[in-house]
């Protein structure tokens, strides 16, 4: 394997680290296992914080994981402009760590949702969506109990105004509406980026959607974007 090195961090309670590593390999990258107690990212070019229930989701989802030893290296990597993708619990951790604004709260209706949904890409100006046109609809699964994105009105206006909403929940045809929003998320937000577009967090799971043998492949373009961008020295 010689593709770009993509680290996947395993926290105690991570569930989707194996699928993320597998997705990196299937898409042509070199997966790098990183343990939450590690102090570096193993020389990786990009890093994925996977889904799951790190530290049992105790206190709040992601609240304990943000203090894991490896998170200092993740913050430094993000500061240098290195690509960071937080998926589901990884998104929650990035918000708790202050690397992304806002917070993920309990789903409206309290139900844990686990199903295939659709998201509409809102911007190509991130390292993970550079090959995806704005308006393109991707089929991907969600599975979470705390995925309702919230932020104070000023922060929300800034995220929207700066075009930092990366994905919104939508119909298969790309229309927005409450019936397509699985958790009551503000403005149907499924994923956001930092101001430089190198840190992205999202509740849906692109890493579960890369293998046509087991379901939709809406996750493939995100890995393609990342693997194209990394050698260019993003």
């Amino acid at each position: 394997m010689s593709g770009p090195r993509v680290a996947v961090i395993t926290f105690p309670g991570s569930l989707d680290d194996r699928d993320a590593l597998r997705a990196v390999r299937l898409m042509g990258g070199t997966p790098v296992l990183v343990w939450h107690r590690d102090r570096d990212l193993g020389g990786a070019d990009a890093v994925i914080l996977p889904g799951g229930f790190s530290y049992g989701d105790h206190l709040r989802a992601g609240a304990i994981a943000r203090f894991a030893p490896v998170m200092a290296a993740v913050a430094e990597h993000a500061e240098r402009g290195g690509p960071v993708l937080g998926i589901c619990n990884g998104f929650q951790i990035l918000c708790e760590a202050g690397l992304l604004p806002g917070a993920l709260t309990r789903n409206v209706g309290l139900a844990f949702v686990c199903r295939r949904i659709h998201v509409r890409c809102e911007t190509s100006a991130t390292v993970f969506t550079s090959t995806i046109a704005a308006g393109e609809v991707l089929p991907v699964p969600v599975k979470h109990g705390e995925g309702r994105f919230v932020a104070d009105p000023e922060t929300l206006a800034r995220i929207e105004g700066e075009g930092r909403v990366v994905f919104r929940y939508c119909s298969p045809a790309g229309h927005l509406g409450g019936e397509w929003n699985p958790n009551g998320s503000t403005n149907h937000i499924a994923g956001i980026a930092n101001d430089r577009g190198n840190v992205v967090g999202m509740m849906p799971h692109p890493e579960h959607a890369v293998d046509p043998d087991v379901g939709p492949t809406g996750g493939q373009p995100m890995f393609e974007s990342l693997l194209q961008a990394v050698p260019a020295g993003v």
Binding site: L59, R60, F67, C95, P101, A103, T105, V150
Partner: peptide
Amino acid sequence: RLLSNPVI
């Protein structure tokens, strides 16, 4: 810093 998330 830990027990509460000041965002929410």
